[in-house]
Amino acid sequence: MGVLLQIIYYAFEFYSMALVIFILMSWFPKAYETGVGRFLSKICEPYLEPFKRFIPPIGMIDISPIVALLVLQFARGGLLQLFNWVL
Rank of each mutant, 00 (worst) to 15 (best):
M1K: 09
M1R: 12
G2V: 09
V3Y: 14
L4W: 07
L4K: 07
L4M: 11
Q6H: 13
I7L: 14
I7M: 12
I7W: 12
I8F: 15
Y9D: 15
Y9G: 03
Y9N: 13
Y10L: 11
Y10V: 06
E13S: 11
E13W: 11
F14I: 15
Y15A: 00
M17H: 12
A18C: 02
L19N: 02
L19E: 00
V20P: 06
V20T: 11
V20Y: 07
V20F: 14
V20H: 05
I21E: 05
I23G: 01
S26H: 05
S26I: 00
F28L: 15
F28P: 04
F28D: 05
P29C: 08
K30F: 12
Y32T: 05
E33K: 14
T34P: 04
T34E: 06
T34L: 10
G35H: 00
G35K: 06
V36I: 15
R38F: 07
R38D: 04
R38I: 14
R38A: 11
F39K: 05
F39D: 03
F39L: 15
S41I: 00
K42A: 13
K42R: 15
K42D: 13
I43S: 01
C44F: 00
C44N: 00
C44Q: 01
E45W: 10
E45F: 06
E45V: 12
E45P: 05
P46T: 04
P46W: 06
P46Q: 09
P46K: 08
Y47K: 03
Y47Q: 01
L48I: 03
L48H: 02
P50E: 04
P50I: 01
F51N: 02
F51I: 00
K52L: 08
K52T: 12
I55Y: 07
I55L: 14
P56S: 07
P57G: 05
M60L: 13
I61D: 06
D62F: 05
I63V: 13
I63S: 03
I63L: 15
S64C: 02
S64Q: 03
P65Q: 06
A68T: 03
L69V: 01
L69M: 07
L70M: 10
L70D: 02
V71H: 00
L72S: 04
Q73I: 10
A75K: 07
A75R: 01
A75L: 14
A75N: 05
R76D: 01
G78W: 01
L80W: 08
Q81M: 13
F83W: 10
N84Q: 13
W85Y: 13
W85C: 10
V86Q: 09
